[in-house]
Design a protein around this nucleic acid. Structure first.
Length: 422
RNA sequence: GGAGAGAUGGCCGAGUGGCCGAAGGCGCUCGCCUGCUAAGCGAGUAUACUGGGACAACCGGUAUCGAGGGUUCGAAUCCCUCUCUCUCCGCCA
């Protein structure tokens, strides 16, 4: 959520900066609504002050019959207040609806652009391997090795689900452990294991609601939603809290499954593990001082990169452009891993800074000094990494001519010493 | 699922219609005192919105005692609904 006062004072600038994201967007109506709100508020509060002072006088008088006309008068005032407050409530609801669907302002460092095609390569790491045979896509490798079973998963549940078996299941689990150990052991994150379903307040705080409900799976009876990323429960750990400045930055890492409807992606990535309704992810989340978020984003990104480096998987880092960053983000680096089966780079991690956008929605604050007013922290998060896609990368990059897959050295201790899946 | 109890400021805890943004204690901050430490003394210690002011200090108003509604001139206090927590029983990984 953007700061209402900031919008009020910089209406044109806000409109212009939001326009760089593309799409239709108008702040017409905001100003009128905002002014209406304040005039209603002023009048309502004036009457409340009147009522309060009159009530005080009435309280002092023993014989209420002496103040009977005042009581009658105040009854009338109460009615007026009620009318004003009803309208005010409506106006505030409209205003808040408007505010809640407004995306974050892009960071000045975010490259201008309209789409994915305008993203900027920041750096690349590793050399894509050259094959002396035609590299196969991971689903072929996985099915042939008997470690991925899409057909049975479709029977059990439906399309876009997978059943891991044997070394495949072990590989997934090994990756989770490997990543968590790395981030807790080397990168100083605190491990958390949050709920996998959350309430609406949590989804709203991080920005999934109200705008993107169609992307989420919902539980019918208690009105809970399945998390599309650990970002949601983990960021909400500190919702409505004032954090100690000396505790910042607070860094959490969490393994969770993620659930996504993938509405509107029919026909995209229909085969394989790339786009599933349920996938595992190890997430990195930070709460930082506003002055540190830029540096912390670099650090967080490098923490995610470290996973790929240790697994010896070639990748590149992309700076997403204004047209491609997410709703809540002000800047984002995507990590794209090389996939021989697709002969291209594919997103395996997305590392974003949200500035104070989520913190304002979630009410996460800190105090600069003992006496100063609370300010919003900055929140950041990134995948470290998407586990299913990491399996894809390993299967495709480490495949051998005979159909077997060499397990990256760093992972072997987590695989009970297994060197090769065949 | 059944029966009961409860939700007050950073924490504990008082408060059953007005003088309560809220006693008291703890904690914390600043100052004083004490030749270390401990104790003691004094002052301060919520947030949001809003008006004024230099969108500074500061001054004023309003709201907030789990959430929402109601009764009343007036609600932390009375009524209704909801949420959450706890205890006991049942069930269960």
């Amino acid at each position: 959520m953007l700061d209402m006062k900031f919008i009020r004072d910089h209406l044109d600038e806000v409109e212009k900066r939001l326009a760089t994201r593309g799409g239709e967007l108008s702040l017409a109506g905001f100003r009128a609504l905002d002014e209406r709100r304040r005039s209603l508020l002023t009048e309502s509060e004036r009457l409340k002050a009147l009522k309060n002072s009159a009530s005080e006088e009435i309280a002092k008088v023993k014989d209420k019959s002496q103040v009977q006309d005042k009581i009658v008068q105040m009854k009338e005032v109460s009615q007026q207040i009620k009318v004003l407050d009803d309208e005010l409530k409506g106006v505030e609801e409209e205003l808040s609806c408007l505010l809640m669907v407004l995306p974050n302002l892009p960071h000045p460092s975010t490259p201008q652009g309209r789409s994915e095609a305008d993203n900027v390569v920041v750096r690349t790491w590793g050399e894509p391997r050259t094959f002396d045979f035609e590299p196969r896509p991971h689903w072929e490798i996985g099915e042939q090795l008997g470690i991925l079973d899409f057909e049975r998963a479709a029977k059990i549940t439906g399309a876009r689900f997978v059943l891991y078996k044997g070394a495949g299941a072990r590989l997934e689990r090994a990756l989770v452990n490997f990543m968590l150990n790395l981030h807790t052991g080397e990168h100083d994150y605190t491990e958390v294991l949050p709920p996998f379903m959350v309430n609406r307040a949590s989804m709203t705080a991080t920005g999934q609601l109200p705008k993107f409900e169609e992307d989420l799976f919902r539980i019918a009876d208690p009105d809970f939603l399945l998390i599309p990323t650990a970002e949601v429960p983990v960021t909400n750990i500190h919702r409505d809290e004032i954090l100690k400045k000396s505790d910042l930055p607070i860094c959490y890492t969490a393994y969770t499954p993620c659930f996504r409807r993938e509405a509107g992606s029919y026909g995209k990535d229909t085969r394989g593990l790339i786009r599933q309704h349920q996938f595992n992810k190890v997430e990195l989340v930070k709460f930082t001082h506003p002055g540190c978020s830029d540096a912390e984003l670099e650090k967080l990104t490098s923490n995610a990169e470290k996973v790929l480096q240790l697994l010896e998987l070639p990748y590149r880092v992309m700076a997403l452009c204004t047209g491609d960053i997410g709703f809540s983000a002000c800047r984002t680096y995507d990590l794209e891993v090389w996939l021989p089966g697709q002969n291209g780079y594919r997103e395996i991690s997305s590392c974003s800074s949200f500035g104070d956008f989520q913190a304002r929605r979630a009410g996460i604050r800190f105090r600069e000094d003992e006496k100063s007013k609370p300010e919003f922290v900055h929140t950041l998060n990134g995948s470290g990494l998407a586990v299913g896609r990491t399996v894809v990368a390993i299967l495709e990059n480490c495949q051998q001519a005979d159909g077997s897959v060499l397990i990256p050295k760093a992972l072997r201790p987590y695989m009970g010493g297994l060197e090769r899946i065949n």
